[in-house]
Design a protein around this nucleic acid. Structure first.
Lengths: 211, 211
DNA sequence: GTCTATAGAAGGATAGAC
DNA sequence: GTCTATCCTTCTATAGAC
C-alpha cells in the first residue's frame, strides 16, 4: 500500500541517494551506516526502519547502479544508425556518461569481483543476447565488409568498452605515470579528446587489421 | 639487527604472503587480521608482534604489489628492441603476467582510488619520467615515421596498457555479457589470443590513424 | 515516522605467561 | 618467539518512547 505521497517516500529516497554516494565512495565493507544516516540527515534507527540491514540496502543500491551502467551501454548499441556512426556515438555518449559518474566503474568492478552473484538480479532486467544479436545480425553486412568474423566479436567488444571505462577505473594509476592529467579538469579534457581519438583509432584498426 | 636465519624471518614471510593473499582477495576494509593469522598458521597476537597494526601491514603489502606491477610494465618498456617488436613484447609478457596475477589490477586500482597517497612510496623507487623519455627519445625516429606527436602519447599509452589490464579488472563484467568466457580456462585462452589480436590491432591503427 | 538509548557482535590490539 | 586470554573500540541492529 502506497502512502499519500508524504514524507515516507521522501525519506526513503534521501536514504537511497545517500547510500549510493557512500557505497560508491567507500565500497560495501568500507561504508558505514552512520555515515549514510548522516548524509541523509536522519539517524541510524530510522535508516533501519526503511532498510532492514546494510546488506539489503547495498543490494538495492548496487542493482540500480549496475543497471544504470548497462542500460547506458545497451541503449547506445540499440540505435538505428550505421556501424561507423554507432561506434562514434557509443564512445561519445559513454565517455560523457562516465565523466558524470567517474566513480561508477571501479565501484561496480570491485564489488562484482568480491561477489559475482550480485549480478544475478540483472539477468531478469536485461537480455545480454539481445545486444549481441544486434551487432551480429543488424550490422552483418558492414561487418562482412570489414572482414570481421563472429568469433572476433568478443575481442572487439571488450576493446571498445575499454576505451571509455578503463581510464576512469585506472584514474589514479594514470595520475602516477602522466602527472599532467592530475587535476580533474585536465583529465576530463583528456577524456573528451578521447572520444574522437578512440573512434578514429578503432575504425582505422578495423579497416586494416588482418587476422 | 638480523637474526641468525631462524624462525624469525620465516614467520615474517609466512605472514606477509598470507596478508598479500587476503588483502588481494578482500581489499583493505574487507580483510580480517584473524584470517591472515589463520592462513599464516599463527595467531593474532603473533601477527601484531611482527606488524604493529593492520594499516602498517597493509602498506607493506600494497607497496610491494604496486611495485610488482610497475616493475613489470617498466622493464618491458626498457627493452632494447624496435618499436613494433616492443609493442608485441609488452602485450605478450604483460598478459602472461596478468594471467598469473589476475586479481592484482582490480585490487591495486580499487585501493588506489580509496587512498591515492598510497602511491607515495613508489616515487622513491621508480622514475616515471624515465619511461616517457625512453618512448619519446629512443623511439623518436619510428614515432615520427608513424606521424605520432608527443601530445599523442598519453592516449596511446593508456590505450596500450588497457589491452592487458582492463579485461582482468573487468573479468566479472565480461562474464555477464560474454558467457562463453565464463570459466577460467576459456578466459585465459581468450587472453592469450588477445596478445596477437591487440598488437595487430594497435599497429594497424597506428599506421592508418589520421588525426 | 522519527528519535534516544543501548544491546550485541565483531574486530583490532595488548597483557602477560611460557 | 609464540601462545591464551582479554580489553576496548567500532559497528550493525533493536527496544521503546514520543
Amino acid at each position: 500500500m502506497v502512502r499519500s505521497g508524504g514524507t515516507d517516500s521522501q525519506t526513503r529516497l534521501k536514504i537511497f541517494r545517500a547510500a549510493a554516494e557512500v557505497f560508491e565512495e567507500k565500497g560495501y565493507t568500507g561504508a558505514r551506516m552512520q555515515e549514510i544516516a548522516d548524509r541523509a540527515g536522519i539517524n541510524k534507527a530510522l535508516l533501519h526502519y526503511y532498510f532492514s540491514s546494510k546488506e539489503q540496502l547495498f543490494r538495492s543500491v548496487f542493482q540500480v547502479l549496475l543497471k544504470k551502467m548497462f542500460e547506458k551501454i545497451f541503449s547506445i548499441f540499440e540505435k538505428e544508425i550505421a556501424f561507423k556512426e554507432k561506434i562514434k556515438a557509443i564512445l561519445e555518449e559513454h565517455i560523457e556518461f562516465m565523466i558524470k559518474n567517474p566513480k561508477l566503474p571501479i565501484f561496480l568492478l570491485n564489488e562484482l569481483s568480491q561477489n559475482p552473484e550480485l549480478a544475478a538480479g540483472l539477468k531478469e532486467m536485461i537480455d545480454y543476447k539481445q545486444i549481441r544479436d544486434i551487432v551480429y545480425t543488424r550490422h552483418a553486412k558492414e561487418l562482412k565488409a570489414y572482414g570481421i568474423k563472429k568469433s572476433d566479436m568478443p575481442q572487439l567488444m571488450v576493446t571498445l568498452v575499454s576505451f571509455s571505462i578503463f581510464p576512469f577505473a585506472a584514474r589514479d594509476m594514470i595520475r602516477l605515470i602522466v602527472p599532467e592529467l592530475g587535476d580533474t579538469r585536465k583529465f576530463n579534457e583528456f577524456m573528451r579528446d578521447r572520444k574522437s581519438f578512440a573512434s578514429g583509432f578503432f575504425m582505422a584498426a578495423l579497416k586494416h587489421h588482418k587476422k
